[in-house]
Write a protein that binds this DNA or RNA. Sequence first.
DNA 1: AAAACGGGGCT
DNA 2: AGCCCAGTTTT
Length: 311
Amino acid sequence: MLQQTTVATVTAYFQKFIDIWPTLTDLAGAEDDKVMTAWAGLGYYARARNLLKCARIVVAKHNGEFPSTEEKLRALPGIGPYTAAAIAAIAFDRPAAPVDGNIERVLARLNADATPPPALKARIKNTNAAMVPHARAGDFAQAMMDLGATICKPKRPNCSICPWHAPCKARAQDIQETLPQRAPKTPKPQRTGTVFWLENAHKDVLMARRPDKGLLGGMLMFPSQGWDASNDTRLPQLLPDGWTPLTGEVAHVFTHFRLNLNLVAQTAPRGFRKPSGYEWVNPRDFPDRALPSVMRKVATIVLEESPKRIA
DNA sequence: AAAACGGGGCT
DNA sequence: AGCCCAGTTTT
């Protein structure tokens, strides 16, 4: 959960997961959709699918116990170099050297290492490995992560209270804020699309399940067109007429593009039958379904604009 | 090596 | 309006 996501954002999700699935076996036995629903809003949905796959593999092939070596951990879905080293060090007290964003920043500054990414990661890994103590490697890793999170911050690091004030080469040259070097940011293209809000007589709304792979994989969406070429739905072709535009729009920012969505709505005409691959979902159930944030934004706008639609 | 992959908290 | 987050997988 914490991969590329702040503790502040994760905490509530972590608690919810632990409440619903207290043990690894519980999680391994969960339905896919229940896990996606619990993950909804956290983003990077491949993590949720990988977490579930991982739990099932550990239960089925490792007797329900996580392996303790980096190599075997690394082989599990969703566990990359960082997580494998972090589990080995923190859970099994192995002398592993995880490198997250915090540790990369702390050590790049400590050594005034101006290597640009992605080569920096490998250099820091070596630097870190040479520093890892034989005992309590997990505490060492967590101490460095906390140092990075609370003192050696990306902006305005609080060098005056830093325990590594004296040996820090970046501070000595007053270049700490320039390190680590960052990849040049690429501009985000703007995409535009249309969302089709179709209600039936029960005020249920037509939704579709996205394929497991790719953007918002495994999540529910309203039929839409124009912004996600590989996953355009068939609804607008099936029902080309009768759509009423709404005044509200939805703006959303993804990792690699910005999205503006226009909204249109209608009540399903007499004789309309739900095509295969779609399902009717009542808005009162939205909180308990796997809607990603962008689709929750859509629902909020439509329901606010048309109060009568609320069941 | 580079791109894909979300969303929110904080400045 | 950016920056960045306890990165991994796919291309």
